[in-house]
């Protein structure tokens, strides 16, 4: 009976390892898709950031369109279903589906990917304000012709 248990474990481990190898490339980035590195004709995952301002809910109330970007390239996505709570513009996302001939990714599943930072709302607010200040400062900085210095 114990030998049977060990054998069952070995089979389970083999199945897990095969799932592992299949998912070693867990998702492809938009740049990889643009470079034709993604599998053709079967479902795969795309990972990246939700492009700010790209999320559009369709009139039917269920379908949503958004764009996944890795800041270099981007992929338009269409999805029918519930989005996870943490799905946000500017935040990470991993979606599974198929790439159609028109270059649109038809998603069957959308997962939110969050970062490894943990902070209270006040700290996040302070960080956002500091970022806005530095962006403003960069915009108002006057750089002399010819590079100065």
């Amino acid at each position: 009976m114990i030998a049977g248990g060990v054998a069952a474990l070995a089979i389970a481990a083999a199945l897990v390892l095969s799932a592992f190898r299949q998912n070693l490339v867990f998702f492809f980035t938009p740049s990889q898709i643009a470079a034709n590195e993604a599998p053709q004709g079967r479902a795969f995952r795309v990972g990246g950031l939700v492009e700010s301002g790209s999320v559009r809910r369709q009139p039917d109330g269920v379908t949503v369109r958004f764009v996944i970007t890795d800041t270099a390239r981007s992929i338009p996505v269409v999805y029918r279903g519930l989005l996870p709570d943490l799905f946000r513009e500017g935040k990470g996302v991993v979606t599974q589906g198929k790439l159609a001939a028109d270059g649109v990714f038809y998603a069957s599943e959308v997962l939110a990917k969050h970062d490894e930072n943990y902070m209270p709302p006040e700290a996040a607010e302070a960080l956002k304000k500091a970022h806005e200040v530095s962006v403003k400062a960069a915009q108002t900085l006057i750089v002399p012709e010819g590079g100065g210095r």
Partner: peptide
């Protein structure tokens, strides 16, 4: 948070 109980990631 992610929206799933499990994925086969590494």
């Amino acid at each position: 948070t992610w929206g799933t109980w499990w994925v086969w990631d590494a």
